[in-house]
Simulated assay, not measured.
Amino acid sequence: MIRESFAEGSSWVHGIDPRLRVVGAAAFAVVVAVSYDFTALFFALILSFCMALSARLYVQTVLQRLLAPAVFLLLLWAVLPWSYEGDALAALGPLTITRPGVTLCAQISLKTVCLMVAFMALVATMTVDTLGHALNRLWLPDKMVHLLLITYRYLFVIEQEYQRLVRAMKIRNFHAKTNLHSYRTYAYLVGMLFVRASERARRVHNAMICRGFNGRFVSLRAFPPNPLNPIFGLGVSLSLALLVTLEWVK
């Protein structure tokens, strides 16, 4: 249900401390989000693809992951250039394409691709379980970490319940059609899924209390030292400093 294909690699990026990768990805996202200069954005794009190459990500898989934001960007390019006010750049019949609209679309597109590729290289190269423990070590609120880890664990259980209910419907010769019976059946399916999820949550909570759960997860995950950690941290710091220089120092 949740594919973690990038987390199965063996590149040097996979060996970097997950906490450093999370902090680096967050800092990179903040700097790129507030950047508007095209020189800085193109440098960030090159940097993000260098991260992907360093993590040895499959190009085909990366492009597949970029398809979803590409659809959003296409809609943006179809609407924003002619609906944004500003100096006219070109005219297509009754529509006037504005220079600020095209500029804004290009900036959003570059930022989207930069952040998606960077997060694939730095965050998607770890499992969700490792990400949760890394966030816990970075002193994020315990409830947020617990919600992430428990959701990750029981999404698979809920998916199994869903498949079981769908099989029961098919055994009873249910065929989806555009009629009231099909709509009512799918409503019952969703309702029963919520009922079973609620019942499962109650049983899991009782089981956790019986095992002494006091509101905190004790993480036994250890992140062994890596001699490349300081080099990675220095590289990220210098890259972000160069991005800031390109954006604000003219």
Score class of each variant (00 low, 15 high):
144 M>L: 15
171 I>P: 00
162 Y>S: 08
148 L>G: 04
159 E>P: 00
168 A>H: 06
168 A>Q: 10
157 V>I: 09
174 F>S: 05
161 E>N: 05
159 E>V: 10
151 T>D: 10
160 Q>C: 01
153 R>M: 01
145 V>D: 02
153 R>W: 03
156 F>L: 12
166 V>C: 10
170 K>G: 00
171 I>T: 10
160 Q>E: 12
152 Y>A: 13
151 T>R: 02
155 L>F: 13
153 R>L: 03
166 V>Y: 07
144 M>P: 04
158 I>F: 11
172 R>D: 08
173 N>Y: 11
147 L>M: 12
149 L>A: 08
146 H>F: 14
174 F>K: 05
157 V>C: 05
172 R>S: 10
168 A>D: 09
160 Q>L: 08
148 L>T: 02
146 H>N: 10
173 N>H: 13
172 R>H: 08
158 I>T: 08
149 L>K: 04
145 V>K: 02
153 R>F: 00
152 Y>R: 03
168 A>W: 07
150 I>T: 11
153 R>H: 00
159 E>H: 12
166 V>A: 12
144 M>A: 13
155 L>W: 05
153 R>Y: 00
163 Q>W: 01
167 R>L: 15
164 R>W: 10
146 H>P: 00
151 T>K: 03
169 M>G: 04
173 N>D: 12
171 I>Q: 04
149 L>P: 00
172 R>Q: 12
156 F>H: 10
154 Y>G: 06
164 R>V: 09
155 L>G: 13
153 R>P: 00
